[in-house]
Design a protein around this nucleic acid. Structure first.
Lengths: 181, 181
DNA sequence: ATCCCGATGCTAGCACTGCTAGACAATCTA
DNA sequence: TAGATTGTCTAGCAGTGCTAGCATCGGGAT
């Protein structure tokens, strides 16, 4: 039956959604197999019928987040160019810290360079590249990496309260100015 | 007796040194209280006579690393200006990934903004500021934060193999060019 | 309608984690 | 030498990720 198939897929999505909610609410350390299985109202082994291990669940959250992030960046860039994109990127990292951490700071199974699940990664990278391209007079790809790293650095250091909160917009502004010249 | 005091201090240093070695060899996940206590040839409770918990040991490694990093940045800046400093910063992160992670990517007790243990943090930040200062026509501190974030972003994304390895020096070069104009 | 079998879900448990109480031994003080 | 203090260990607790093995339920064949 494919009703079963649908029910199964729905449950898989429920697991991912719940894991993400738990993580955003109490941090990834609070997302244990026991708490998660209790939250979805199934026993622990059910989780392993859907995902190889806990790491795979985090990866699933990361992929969902990546899709979201790509969409956010796209519309922000179309509306506000590189400045809008930079603001949107850091905004996303602040609004969904656990999801952002799943994508970028926690160790994941996601292989970035290879041809495994790179489609959404390429799309996101493409958004960054499109924002940077008008200001690159040489190697667009490398400048994109530099710009992306700069954004990620601000997101990461921001999240651990290592940068002065009041200067948040100033930092974005300065970074954009550096790139646009 | 202060012979005891010295022996005790030496043992504390041994714990930190060993934790760091274990982390650099096999990653922080492999640094458990049991493995660490076995490596220093004491039982687990001894660790807790020196440190409040495992987190405090990581913090101690981070502080040691921060002192090292400050010294590295200083001599690199004096010899090679901002370009030398950038190269040295990323070099340190690559050569001591676990130590760098203890300082910046793992969650630590280190409060950065407050007046608790900020001396070495201020010194390191000062090195970055000194490197950036000649090229800042406005707010040095904010530009330093932007530059630092950009370096940290490259270090972090580099460590997780998310940037093309071959373009490593190109990225440093581009970043330096952005700042120096 | 009944039997069977595969899928689905659970209980219980393993080896590991950080951390600690309480017993024992070694050392210094008087 | 007796007492106190310091140091160290064994044993154990609660919690972790993960899995073997047993129930139970539903759909298809006879």
């Amino acid at each position: 039956m494919d009703r079963r198939e649908r029910a199964r897929a729905e449950r898989g999505a429920l697991i991912v959604r719940t894991a993400r909610e738990l993580a955003e609410a109490d941090g990834w350390d609070a997302v244990t197999t026991r708490r998660l299985s209790e939250a979805v109202e199934y026993s622990q082994p059910v989780l392993y019928g859907h995902f190889k291990n806990m790491q795979a669940i985090v990866t699933a959250v990361a992929l969902d987040g990546m899709v979201e992030l790509a969409a956010v960046l796209r519309s922000a860039r179309e509306a506000g160019g590189i400045r809008g994109l930079a603001e949107a990127y850091l905004g996303y990292a602040e609004e969904h810290p656990a999801t952002y951490a799943a994508i970028f700071t926690r160790r994941t199974d996601l292989v970035f360079g290879a041809a495994e699940s790179p489609e959404i990664l390429k799309i996101t990278f493409g958004e960054l590249a499109a924002a940077v391209e008008p200001y690159a007079n040489g190697d667009v790809e490398t400048l994109t990496e530099v710009f992306w790293s700069a954004l990620h650095g601000q997101a990461a250091l921001n999240q651990e309260a290592r940068l002065r909160p009041a200067q948040r917009t100033d930092r974005i502004e300065q970074l954009v100015k550096l790139v646009t010249g």
